[in-house]
Design a binder for these strands. Structure first.
Length: 205
DNA sequence: GGGCCGATTGTT
DNA sequence: ACAATCGGCCCG
């Protein structure tokens, strides 16, 4: 006699590795609307739709991997479907997902999620307790510390495209994708704010 | 070691 | 307009 299937709780599935192995721009576009899932150390599970991303590719001057493999960006050269977490401005962490085939660096920066306190890449990581402990973590296993599940379909006309925010090189590329009208999306998508480098230039004059 | 820069954010 | 704040990376 066969046993009945034990009832099990519904679990958000995880995108497979083949999803992340695609071209970085394709993955970035596809991640808008996907569900970012995070299990905290105490077991609490947080979920929310990704509403803003940016693509960073090989040979892209703004990409951390542009000048080759270093300890910091090594994860980007590894297999797709893993988390690349970096520390910025002495106080914030930022979450990326590694794309492209193993050996080819590429990543998508998760800039905002449609959940409380997760607007902006730095605030997202602070709110969801993401730091170096998640650098290199697999995103391929549901109910792990970090994974991404498919979300509600998003149509082309719901997606906005613009230049990336806060970079000083390769500003011409329109590699930022976001859900139009979502309140968590960064409000001022321009690069008019001075970077520290530009401030130094200004000081010398 | 030294010095500079930065995929941010919030305040003045 | 700019301060907070420190790891990464390049240079020597």
């Amino acid at each position: 006699m066969s046993r009945l299937n034990p009832s099990k709780p519904t679990l958000s599935p995880a995108y497979p590795q083949e999803f992340y192995a695609q071209d970085t721009l394709t993955v970035a576009r596809a991640l808008v609307g996907a569900t970012l899932c995070r299990k905290l150390a105490d077991g609490t599970i947080l979920q929310g739709p990704i509403v803003e991303v940016e693509a960073y590719t090989q040979d892209d001057p703004a990409c951390h991997a542009a000048r080759g493999k270093t300890p910091r960006c090594a994860v980007m050269f590894g297999p797709p479907g893993f988390a690349y977490v970096y520390f910025i401005y002495g106080m914030y962490y930022c979450l990326n997902v590694v794309t492209e085939a193993e050996g080819t660096p590429g990543a998508v920066l998760i800039r905002a999620v449609g959940a409380e306190g997760t607007n902006g890449p730095g605030k997202l990581c602070r709110e969801w307790q993401i730091d170096f402990a998640q650098n290199g973590a697999s995103l391929l296993k549901p109910n792990s510390e970090l994974w991404i599940a498919p979300g509600a379909p998003v149509t082309e006309n719901q997606i906005g495209i613009s230049e990336r925010i806060g970079i000083s090189q390769a500003q011409e590329h329109q590699w930022r994708f976001f859900l139009k009208g979502n309140p968590s999306v960064t409000k001022h998508p321009n690069n008019k704010s001075k970077t520290n480098k530009q401030k130094q230039e200004r000081k010398r004059t």
